[in-house]
């Protein structure tokens, strides 16, 4: 418990699992999207946490940066990946919400399991 690294890791994993529980148990599209959002946040935390170690500084170089002290900075690459991943998550969420609105307009419900099939014509 003295090392916060494991705290971050376990927290991130628990967040992912809560999201997964939501995805598995809900049929409401809005809730599915929210649960997927939780999972995304969880995995983003996990990426940064997996390469974090105790007591590092943010990867912004100060006045003087010595090559020997490179180890005292946090790993910049996972942070860059998560930056990308957050924006991608926003795109996915936005499109999913648009799909939800469209679905609601077509069926009048937000529930997924409506099995009624209609004819397709092109």
């Amino acid at each position: 418990m003295n090392n916060p690294v494991f705290l971050f890791g376990i927290g991130a994993f628990a967040l992912m699992m809560i999201g997964l529980y939501g995805v598995l148990t809900h049929k409401n599209i809005f809730r599915l999207i929210l649960s997927l959002g939780l999972m995304e946040t969880g995995v983003n935390l996990f990426i940064v946490a997996a390469s974090y170690w105790d007591g590092v500084r943010a990867p912004i170089l100060g006045k003087i940066f010595n090559v020997k002290t490179a180890d005292s900075y946090a790993d910049p690459l996972p942070q860059a990946l998560v930056l990308t991943s957050i924006v991608i998550g926003l795109g996915v969420t936005a499109l999913a919400l648009a799909l939800m609105i469209k679905y609601r307009e077509g069926t009048g419900t937000l529930e997924m399991e409506d099995k009624r099939e209609e004819e397709v014509e092109e």
């Binding site: 995995v43 983003n44 990426i47 997996a50």
Partner: peptide, 9 residues
């Protein structure tokens, strides 16, 4: 992404 986190770190 979780796999990437494991592999990268």
């Amino acid at each position: 992404l979780a796999a990437i986190a494991i592999i990268y770190s």
